[in-house]
Write a protein that binds this DNA or RNA. Structure first.
Length: 542
RNA sequence: GCCCUUGUAGUGAAAUGGAUAUCACGACAGGCUUCGAACCUGUUAUUGGGGGUUCGAAUCCCUCCAAGGGCACCA
């Protein structure tokens, strides 16, 4: 990885242990990579009198010049084509052709494993829970956002070397209010849930519901059917494959909920008020205490959810747990966090539990907002949207923006726009790669490829862009940020289209053609990986 | 009232405190005898207002304005 090599060189030179940055500057006149190390050092020297005397009184430009000199006298000499110092103290790097050509060889050698790494030790076991939609109806567009986000984040973390479990929490507990409400609907005694196909599902269930009078049981039965449909849709329609479907009801069955309540009582964290059992969450950072068991004797959602998270941390021993929730649940975070803290989950800090909130999506149709309500039965489901716009386009559109953007989705433009969705731009680049490779039936010996012939601006730009893949994976994984990858795929496509426009492959001089075909192969490898990670299909033709 | 999130070209978005704010769509002006033009090249914003911190702010702090969400013995 080129970037980390620059890091290493800089660390050798500066000795101080400080946070420095190496980045790809937006403007190419500032080099292939750039670092603010001198600026950071100067700031530090000004604030901290104990620091290395050599630095005292020097301005960033002087420090940058010294680092440049030191780098130039090291082996780094062959690594960089040029190093420049720029105001107010940046050091800009140009990578030598040789290094880039070697990196290309590396990609061709490692193929689909290029950029993969293995994370060892304590923090490597990650559980990531997402969608977890209530089995009371079809998935919403908001579920889709969280779903694609979680799926791709999990893919990235896996690729970056973590052991990842993608998990869906099925809220099928007979004791829960919504399941009971659903049960009423199933038994024809309520009509809160008026979603598509619901009547049909109930009709099909007919026999099984006959002798049931218990709302919880009836609701659970109906929920299971709805869940079957949702699962099928998630796997086939959304192309998201969960490693585990975790049933809330199972926590009741195996006694985990009861056991937890006992433990809380034993730890003197529970008291009674108004006939209900309350937990002293306020003592652990929540705004107020919370009900665990209602006056009716039924547990709230909170109690089994704590049991669930206890299962994640203690039973299954995940070292990193990530929950992805819609914005309408964000207020719940302090409660759960307080609960887990009370259970001594966070003895080594609460960083092992991360909640990512995805903001809601606003649907616009003909200039007006379409209110999404499950209750009136007129909402647009995720299924509808994907049928209209297509899975690849929907996925990519959602993945391009940050989870906390309040996205506007214009349905009137959706279809029209879908044809111009950026995903097609990326797919087209991959199709072009495939097209060239299909047409070129040229035979050449791999060992004799002259990679040093790849020396035009376009050749080198493309290689540099390909080499960024491994850096982007790392960045996306470290920041839990899938959109970095989606954006990168656009960058790569742009660089490739530029290359394609300006350089010929077929018809070039024999040795150059062979080298360029290898370059195209490498590009295809990276695209393939990108599409796999993003869950987007890689068409051969468009 | 309190809490969370957001405010960036006509539109939708991007930018771990870095340099001349990036991308797509739309609009306008150009580009195919040759690997697929679903492509390429231009033009289109002083980042909601006002203060502050910093060598350096879309990003951090304060304040005002605006939008979305949450404040259940629902999940």
């Amino acid at each position: 990885m080129i970037k980390s090599k620059i890091f290493d060189y800089l660390k050798k030179v500066i000795k101080e242990k400080i946070e420095i940055e190496v980045f790809v500057p937006e403007n190419e006149q500032f080099g292939h990579y750039s670092s603010n190390v001198a600026l950071k050092l100067a700031t530090l020297a000004r604030k901290n009198a104990d620091l290395n005397a050599e630095l005292r009184g020097k301005n960033p430009m002087q420090i940058a010049e010294e680092i440049k000199t030191a780098l130039s006298s090291m082996i780094a000499r062959d690594f960089f084509e040029k190093i420049e110092v720029a105001t107010p103290g940046f050091i800009n790097f140009w990578i030598s052709e040789k290094v880039l050509q070697d990196e290309l060889k590396e990609i061709l050698k490692k193929k689909q494993n290029y950029g993969k790494s293995a994370v060892r030790g304590q923090m490597s076991k990650v559980q990531i829970e997402f969608i977890s939609a209530n089995p009371t109806g079809q998935l919403t567009i908001g579920n889709g956002r969280g779903g694609f986000f979680g799926d791709v984040l999990a893919n990235i973390l896996k690729f970056a070397g973590y052991k990842v479990v993608k998990e869906y929490y099925v809220n099928d507990a007979k004791a829960s209010t919504q399941i009971k409400e659903l049960g009423k609907t199933a038994l024809g005694e309520g009509n809160i849930y008026k979603t598509k196909n619901l009547e049909l599902i109930i009709k099909n269930l007919g026999e099984k519901l006959k002798n049931i009078t218990d709302y919880g049981k009836a609701g659970n039965l109906l929920a299971r059917e709805i869940q079957k449909d949702n699962k099928k849709f998630i796997e086939k329609g959304l192309k998201i494959n969960f490693d585990k479907w975790f049933s809330e009801e199972s926590l009741y069955k195996n006694g985990a909920v009861e056991k937890l309540l006992d433990e809380l009582k034993r730890k003197n964290l529970v008291y009674e008020k108004g006939g209900a059992l309350w937990m002293k969450t306020k003592d652990f950072g929540d705004n107020e205490d919370r009900v665990l068991v209602r006056a009716s004797g039924e547990p709230t959602y909170f109690l089994p959810d704590m049991a669930y998270h206890l299962n994640k941390f203690k039973t299954r021993k995940f070292t990193q747990v990530i929950d992805i929730w819609g914005a309408d649940h964000h207020g719940y975070e302090p409660r759960l966090r307080a609960g887990l803290k009370a259970l001594s989950i966070f003895e080594n800090g609460d960083g092992k539990f991360k909640v990512i909130i995805t903001q809601l999506i606003r649907l616009i149709k003909e200039g007006k907002e379409v209110k999404m309500s499950k209750r009136n039965g007129e909402f647009i489901t995720l299924d509808d949207l994907i049928k209209e716009v297509g899975l690849d386009a929907t996925r990519f559109f959602f993945l391009m923006s940050s989870s906390d953007t309040h996205m506007n989705f214009d349905l009137s433009l959706a279809k029209e726009r879908s044809m111009k969705n950026p995903v097609y731009y990326v797919q087209y680049a991959a199709v072009r790669c495939g097209g060239i490779l299909r047409k070129s039936n040229v035979k050449y010996q791999k060992s004799r490829i002259k990679f040093d012939l790849l020396s035009t601006n376009e050749d080198l730009n493309l290689i540099r862009q390909l080499a960024r893949f491994s850096e982007v994976i790392k960045e996306a994984a470290n920041n839990y940020n899938p959109q970095i990858l989606a954006r990168y795929s656009l960058d790569l496509a742009k660089t490739f289209h530029n290359f394609y426009e300006k350089e010929r492959i077929m018809g070039a001089e024999e040795n150059l053609m062979a080298a360029r075909l290898e370059l195209i192969k490498a590009t295809q490898v990276i695209f393939k990986n990108l599409f796999g990670l993003l869950g987007v299909s890689m068409p051969k033709k468009m």
